[in-house]
Amino acid sequence: MAIIEVRHLTKRFGPKVVLRGLDLSVAEGEFVALLGPNGAGKTTLLRILASLSKPTLGEVWIAGYRLSDQAAWVRRRLGVVSHQPLLYGDLSAEENLRFYARLYGLKNAEARVREILNLVGLWARRRDLVRTFSRGMQQRLAIGRAILHDPEVLLLDEPHTGLDQEACDMLDHLLRQVAALGRTVVMTSHDLARAADLASRFDVLSGGRIQASARREDLAGDALLTFYRQALIPDPNVVSERAQA
């Protein structure tokens, strides 16, 4: 069963077309690594899925809700980690999580906040203002914010950015736990080795469309790199379309 369904998605910024009639279907419980070069539209796609940006054309359904007119219902089912941490600098770590717990109407909020702070390694800094945190610590807390309400779908835009090795290992462990619970994850990444280690499926975005998709079991050894490179070989039809646009 598809928990994310994207049909004929187009996104324009003035004359520039970033997404070109993109189709995407993600089954419940899949961990999809969204790969592609800089400027391919990966962040744009995730922002649309997260209801942070509106498509020019096309439709998106998440957990059975149509994003165009049921965005509030969709947001309650999403956890999002973007390039902006979406945290309040003049609140402490625990105050930030308490605020989001109230937004989501969480029961046993204090216990959940304590659990998350321990999970992301920030319990000792729980009373410190977020504006005093390093980039990596803010990223840890942003990840905690995203999973606080146990969302059905987790959207991650380069989540390892700014994290040291210890924090990266922590995040990998956490993502494996989320996946083991049957939650759906879509993660953009430039790190093929990390993507290969975490994801169950790999989609390559280029030319405004998903050019290729493969499952982990179909790729042996270091075949992900070969698959990725082949997916980026220009399609003559796409080149022709761009010339006509």
Rank of each mutant, 00 (worst) to 15 (best):
E152G: 11
L171P: 03
H149V: 11
R12E: 14
V113P: 09
R229T: 09
L91W: 12
L86F: 10
Q165M: 13
I48H: 04
A199P: 00
L45P: 00
G121M: 07
A101E: 09
S68M: 10
N237K: 14
R209V: 10
Y88R: 12
Y100N: 00
L78S: 07
N108K: 04
A72W: 08
A243E: 08
G144V: 02
V60D: 02
W73Y: 14
S240A: 14
S213T: 03
A2S: 15
A180N: 09
R76Q: 05
L67S: 03
H8W: 00
E166W: 13
L148T: 13
R20G: 03
F99V: 03
L9E: 10
L52R: 06
R183D: 10
L163V: 07
L9I: 01
R131E: 04
R77S: 05
L46C: 06
G29Y: 11
L141T: 04
V239A: 07
D150C: 03
E28L: 02
I210L: 14
P236H: 12
R209A: 04
A71K: 09
L49C: 10
V113D: 03
L9D: 10
K54C: 08
W73D: 13
N118Y: 05
T43A: 04
L129D: 01
A223G: 07
L103G: 04
I210N: 00
E110G: 06
E110S: 12
L106V: 00
G39Q: 04
A71W: 06
L78Q: 01
K54T: 11
A212C: 02
R7H: 11
L78K: 02
D157Q: 10
E5G: 05
E115D: 15
V81A: 05
I3C: 11
A93C: 09
E95G: 12
V60E: 09
N237T: 13
D150P: 01
R209N: 01
G64A: 04
R135H: 14
L103R: 03
T44L: 03
I116H: 09
Q138F: 06
M1F: 08
L117C: 11
L9R: 06
R7L: 04
K54R: 02
